[in-house]
Design a protein around this nucleic acid. Structure first.
Lengths: 339, 339
DNA sequence: TATAGTGACGAAAGCGCTTACGAAAGCGCT
DNA sequence: AGCGCTTTCGTAAGCGCTTTCGTCACTATA
């Protein structure tokens, strides 16, 4: 674990005939150096192949300018796209990104945040739905508040109850769009395959759906399973085994919708002839499945980029929140109900 | 950028009534402390909510125990799954992972590796195909060699020409499997949609295919496009516009295969009735598309996990290479040729 | 000409930790 | 009791950088 060679800043300083302090100021673009001298030092550094030691910088300077990103599960396309957006935007700004994942375990988020804090990253972005119950958000909120007092920047994607910068998809409106589409087609008996009920994302989308269904006299049945393809399969089977006759099913995310399609196919039911299916998110693949999925598109990558933008903005004044729009993408999986 | 409070190791030492050195040894699990004293110190640290400062550790100790992962593009399911494998295995070992991406630009890999080295990460994993031409691998090889002399650990996924730990999918064998499957079905005119020809992954898979095709008297046409869904679409159109009549098409990865299916559909050609389609990788979604894709499964997540295992192994002796198997998954997209 | 004010720079004090190195204490042995 | 050995712990020297603080021209004001 040794680094035999490695030119240090003092080497650069010596070679440039200036003091260590001046070299440091020149490299960090600080004030107190004449422009020409700074330029000279930088040239020398370049020639010597000087690479700053981030640890030393972090130790001396406090937090270091890099971004820690906590995602639920990078294997999930939804989060992978968010991460992609973060990475792109961050690399534009020359910030490195450290990704950790909570493995779909909300409690693990706190652990990850602590780990990030211990690494003294300058910013933390948390991507993932929060709890509906504010009380459950409290521990994370406390940790983040403490972190902010130390100068850390924080942004969350998709959770409201934290008093920090946030970028929020309009899940309620997306729910309304999907529901309106379905009722407009004539569906009156609809099954909803939901994710874990305690999550914001789930309850917001569900509320959006319900606000339309209730006022249209739709008979809706809700089952809750894990927010995955398997959850979609299980949910579909549970719903149908219960004997609830539905003409349409909406899964609260596309991963589940994929499961729904699969389960329906296995049961010999045709989509959309026998039953329509709709989802949320518009992850990359749903346009290629058969039938192509109708879904409410959420701009995942853009949300990631916006989170970085929030963090990078000069002043850490009042927490700001950005609301993202959605777009209903109608494809082949939805049609008028049979008979 | 200040951290007002933050309990330091000396605080822990004081509270435990030991010296700073002893406290350090107790926390890092080093030798030279009695087990009971170490346990005592750790208890105090826990109670005080002590969080080690990674920068200080890195500065004092040289490299820090975390993993830097360079991927071509996390948006790509292939790399996302590899990353997922790395993350899982690393979190088991308590190592944090820093992900950077090369944005599909091989030259950018070197940049990323340099950035990682500047952060003094203890290990670097590079996921992505290398160049067929060893000369093009040289710069990266040099940087990595230097890094290793400083005590850094390196593993690459899917590239042979570097003298470091490597986990390699058996692309050649996978090519043979796919080709054998197709010729066994009776296909004699086959189109291949390849990715960039200079890449290992591409040439290995292509060689595997060719070794079978050549000995079976198959008439094969190869076109090369980008390794993406769009590349698959363009490749298919190019191939078909050229007027080469084929009864089967194999895309050198699933992303391209998805594009092939799409392009074929747009041209009104049925799969597999008019033309069979096969891919490589078995990314999560290809079992849900229509028709479900026949593909040579590569264990992406497992490869990521293995790379971490290589890096974590105690002794950094001779570079080791692990070869991963593949599995031909026959689904609905391949069938006997028409007439 | 004397005095305060300004900007550019250098000297040196840490940031929190790991790790030689040395001191002290316990052990078995002669 | 005295010897050398091992084990346990403390002292202190940095790791490479940022940043206060002070110094030293030099310019502006009276």
């Amino acid at each position: 674990m040794k680094q035999p060679d490695a030119t240090r800043l003092v080497d650069v300083a010596a070679a440039a005939g200036v003091s260590l302090a001046t070299a440091s100021r020149a490299m960090t673009g600080g004030t107190g150096v004449s422009d020409e001298l700074a330029e000279h030092v930088r040239a020398i550094a370049e020639r010597l192949g000087y690479v700053p030691n981030l640890h030393a910088r972090g130790l001396a300077g406090g937090l270091v300018s890099s971004i820690g990103l906590v995602v639920h599960e990078i294997g999930d396309p939804y989060f992978a796209e968010i991460a992609s957006g973060v990475l792109h935007r961050a690399s534009l700004a020359g910030q490195s990104v450290q990704i950790t994942h909570a493995d779909r375990d909300p409690r693990s988020e706190l652990t990850q945040v602590n780990a990030l804090m211990m690494q003294r990253v300058g910013s933390i972005i948390i991507a993932g739905s929060g709890y509906t119950d504010p009380a459950l958000e409290a521990p994370l909120g406390d940790a983040l508040a403490q972190y902010r007092t130390r100068g850390g920047r924080v942004a969350v994607i998709g959770r409201h109850h934290l008093d920090v910068d946030a970028v929020l998809p309009d899940n309620h409106a997306a729910g309304v769009s999907v529901a309106t589409h379905l009722t407009g087609l004539g569906h009156r008996r609809i099954g909803v395959i939901a994710g874990p009920l305690g999550l914001n994302t789930v309850s917001d989308r569900l509320d959006g759906l319900r606000s339309v269904f209730d006022s249209t006299g739709v008979h809706v049945t809700v089952v809750s399973h894990s927010f995955t393809r398997e959850g979609g399969i299980d949910g579909t089977n549970a719903l149908l085994d219960r004997g609830s006759p539905v003409t349409a099913m909406v899964a609260l995310n596309d991963a589940m919708a994929l499961g729904v399609l699969r389960a329906l196919r296995q049961r010999g039911m045709r989509v959309p002839e026998d039953v329509s299916v709709a989802g949320f998110d518009d992850i990359a693949v749903v346009s290629d499945v058969a039938p192509a999925l109708t879904t409410a598109r959420i701009p995942m990558a853009e949300m990631g980029a916006q989170a970085v933008a929030l963090i990078l903005r000069a002043e850490a004044d009042e927490p700001r929140r950005i609301s993202m729009g959605h777009e209903l993408i109608v494809r082949a999986s939805t049609a008028a109900p049979p008979d």
